[in-house]
Amino acid sequence: MPPDPTIALHLIQQVAKQDRDAFSQLYDRFSTLVFTLAMRMLKARSDAEDLLQEVFVQVWRQAENYSAERGSPEAWIINIARSRAIDKIRSIRRMQKSFVLTDDPARAESADNVESSAAESEARIAMNSALANLPETQRRVLELAYFGGLTQTEIAERLAEPLGTIKTRMRSGIQRLREMLGTQAA
């Protein structure tokens, strides 16, 4: 169940006034969501914990700038988390390209872990979840983009598929999610 946006909105307004109790409640409400996403994207617990802390530091600093017109509190917080996680994932790739010895097979394997973790995640997806209801080809591209931080071009290269095909799968997957969301709301 998604968190109640009305309560979260009130909490963010209180956090903007530097109310630490409200901040504590906001953390309790969203920390597991953020941490779950961080673990899925970054894999290592220590990285995910660092990210969680960074996200809530940003929430504390920027609560005053939050506007409900720009999205729900959950979307705002998750967007902060995803942006930061993607920055980290991309910096790992840049670092690996810059100075990691590419002939180290263990390392090469770890650099390629986005795809393997996409497969690993399949086992963790609840059967009644939104992802489980997507066709495999659509689910794969959405996972690589959303959790792996890959761009459309990188996904096309990784899957050796034309860019147009990847775009179509992504858009079809998103449309399907919209339909599911509509069904849930009805």
């Binding site: 998604p2 630490r20 901040f23 504590s24 953390y27 920390s31 597991t32 969501l33 941490f35 779950t36 996403l37 673990m39 899925r40 995910a48 914990e49 969680l52 802390q53 809530f56 530091v57 504390w60 999205g71 729900s72 959950e74 979307a75 998750i78 967007n79 995640s121 963790r124 997806i125 609840a126 979840s129 939104a130 992802l131 489980a132 959405l142 996972e143 959303y146 959790f147 998103i174 999610l177 919209r178 599911m180 969301l181």
Partner: peptide
Amino acid sequence: MRETLLLLHRSITPTTPSPSVKTRLFNDI
């Protein structure tokens, strides 16, 4: 679209963070 995509992370099994993260965060603040 961003609201729609929230369905994706709600699809994965929740993982609870260590309580020490909250302690560190509040110590900093």
